[in-house]
Each structure stands twice: as C-alpha cells, then as structure tokens.
Amino acid sequence: MTVAQAATASAEHGEIDEHHWTSTGLDTRKLAIWGFIGSECLFFASLIATYLVYRGQSLVGPLPHTESQCMLDGKMQACEGIFEIPLVTFGTAVLLFSSLFVVLALYGAQKGDRKMLITWLSATVICGLFFIGMQVYEFYHFYHKGLGYSTNLFSSTFYTLTGFHGSHVTLGVIWLSTMLVLALRGKLPPEKALNLELAALYWHFVDVVWIVIFPVVYLMR
C-alpha cells in the first residue's frame, strides 16, 4: 500500500493525513506520467499519420522497399530498396528485451533485492544504448546510400518519425542511467521504487511506440 492509499484509507475512518491526501488514492506523479504518455500518443500519431499519407508520394529514390531511380555520386542511377530488415529486427528485439529487463529491475527494487535491481537496470541501459547505436548506424548507412534528410518525402517523414523516437530513447537512457547511479549509491530503497517505476513506464511507452513503428514503417511494403 502506498502512502497515498494509506491516507485515503484512513480518511474513510474520519481522519485525514492532510499531507498525503489524494482523492483517488493514486500517486500524483504516476498520474502525471500517464497523462504525459497519453499526450505523447498524439505526438507519435501525427508523425506516423504523415508517414502513411505520404507513402508512395516520393518523386525520387531511394525508396524503402522497392527499386527506384536516385541521385547518387552526382548522377541518376538505379538503386535498391534501402531498408535492412535484419538489422532493424535485431534492434527491435533488443528494445523488447530492455522492456523485460526494466520490469525485472523494478521487481528487484520493490522487493529490496539490490543485486537484481542493479543487474537488470544496467542491462536495460546497455540495451537502450545498443538501440541508439543501431539507429545511428542505420541513419549513417542510409545517408551513404543517397538518402539525405530532404532527399524525398519518404526520407523526411522517416527520419523525423524515427529520429523523434530515437530522441525519446535517448532521454529514457539518460533517465534510467540516473536511476542506476542512485541505485549504485543505495538511494533507491523499496519505498522509493516508484521513482524507478515512473522511468520504467516512460521506457515501456517508448517501446510500444516502436512496436507500432516496426511493422507499420518497416514491414508494410
């Protein structure tokens, strides 16, 4: 039972812990992070919707899946579909596993199992870094195959969508790393596990966004 729930429960018996009172019995910060996640849904929906509307509207290549004419090394030439599905599948799996790891770390934090907390939180951070690395490599690779940011509509919508997802991953890694430092210093005891839970919720959200992006952007031809 959280402090807020305890305060609410005691209110039913006529006495109120005024400093911990909440009307729903839920933690205020947790409500806020969920509200923020709800708001972010519309942010990513706009990005994904634009990608879908502009699918197939590019005037030049490279294109995601199919062969096209594109400008490379100063002349127009035929070039292949640009996506590297195996690489992205690998990145997707890594991000999925990081979600598993952070939920294990949270379990450890709530049970006061410091070793479990630190092990799985480190694993989460490493997975996050790995995903960012995958994306940096992918962008670099695409750029050298002639896909600049303003090359065509596909590239602009793709880079903006995945770029903003990547920046969310980066923020998540910074947040989780902060939690890791706190955990290492022993400042994440069970009664403060909520601090990690907030970061974990954000991290899962970033993961579910990728769960949508991966099939919609990469696998639908």
């Binding site: 209110a11 109120i16 009172w21 909440t22 009307s23 729903t24 839920l26 205020t28 409500l31 806020a32 509200g35």
Partner: peptide, 9 residues
C-alpha cells in the same frame, strides 16, 4: 492531475 487527485475529501 490536480483536478483528478487533489479534490478535498
């Protein structure tokens, strides 16, 4: 959050 969570008893 204020309206959802901080209403008086």
């Amino acid at each position: 959050v204020t309206i959802v969570n901080l209403r008086a008893p």
